[in-house]
Design a protein around this nucleic acid. Structure first.
Lengths: 198, 198
DNA sequence: GTCCAATTATTCAAACTTGACTATATGGAG
DNA sequence: CTCCATATAGTCAAGTTTGAATAATTGGAC
């Protein structure tokens, strides 16, 4: 599966474990992951299978509610937690010019990292976007001079610059909110497990 | 293949026909479609095969430059041109909240439509984005009141609103530029075929 | 003149995604 | 009490994507 599917499903298993596929499917659909991450129900089951093969999650028997169909229970392995953190960190510290999915996923799982790391990474992200936009600006003026490149390529640079600026504005706001104490991060919880109905 | 791959490859065949796969591969890679549309070389060949099966393009024999490997020549069918216009029009008139690829593809091929249609659609797009952002705003305040929804979901709405605003700003600029006579559209060309080296 | 890194043109297996399908169970309408 | 629409829990075939592999050719360095 793509790294995004990996990140989202592994992160969701981590958040709700022990958990069965159908619960993840319902929960993630209420998150609208089909819209912002292009993850369809079938992909969730496939991701579980694949994460299991890689040893990042393991089956933990089956159960059934009443006479309902059996369902397979999953939980993360220690390796899985390491992998999740790696994926999350990679996403946090990388600016993607065109793909909006990573930042969306990040938003859902950043609280698994520490407040300090997220703050530091956001600061870097804000600066990196400045650099990308500046580089885009030079590309635009080169395109204007070129005789072979179609003129409309300018529009592509224009649009991606504006989108990057939007992400930057968001990162600035989030940076402020987090610095001001918003949300709760991994280094701050006295282990309050999230309640859920199965 | 995804509709984007379909649109980009079919559009490129139309633009460069008669054309062989490797030319498209090189050309589209210089467009960086692997970055903004996630189309890798392998997908281009698959798209050609699939478009051919659907009857939207047809093989037109093979040729070879010197002792180079043979290459298969493709061109659009009448049905293919209809399908291309359908895909293009659908993309033009639809606002995608999360997927940045359609607008990017649009930018590359909008000149296949008429100036009037593009102008009209941009106007609608600008208004539609207002509506989406407004609806997002109400979602944000609902989330703030809800006790079950995690607070950070607010960030997702925030980010997508800002991104939509960025697209809107771009659409406004493009609208102005096009109205002012920028670029050349299908209804305006005295059929100047684009030169290319094979 | 000969070596070799890069180019040409494509194929392919493995992995991933999609969306329809299965098969049973439950809850609520009448 | 009996329907039947919906929910449950997944499976699977068909289609798509990926990235490496293939196999011959050419251009340029030495």
């Amino acid at each position: 599966m793509s790294n995004i599917t990996r990140l989202v499903v592994l992160g969701a298993v981590r958040q709700f474990e022990p958990v069965h596929g159908y619960f993840l499917r319902r929960e993630l659909m209420t998150w609208h992951v089909d819209e912002w991450a292009n993850i369809q129900p079938g992909s969730i089951y496939n991701a579980l299978k694949s994460l299991k093969q890689d040893g990042y999650i393991q089956e933990n028997g089956t159960e059934a509610a009443g006479k309902r169909p059996e369902r397979t229970i999953y939980q993360t392995t220690p390796n899985g937690v390491v992998e999740l953190m790696r994926l999350l960190r990679q996403t946090l510290w990388t600016v993607e010019t065109f793909d909006t999915k990573p930042v969306m996923a990040l938003t859902s799982f950043m609280f698994l990292l520490s407040r300090a790391e997220v703050v530091a990474a956001l600061k870097v992200r804000i600066a990196e976007i400045d650099a990308k936009v500046a580089s885009n600006g030079f590309d635009i003026s080169d395109v204007a001079k070129s005789s072979t490149t179609p003129a409309y390529v300018r529009e592509i640079f224009e649009l991606s610059s504006l989108r990057l600026r939007a992400e930057q504005e968001w990162a600035r706001g989030l940076y402020d909110r987090i610095l001001a104490g918003a949300y709760t991060f991994a280094d701050e919880i006295a282990a309050g497990t999230v309640a859920r109905d199965s």
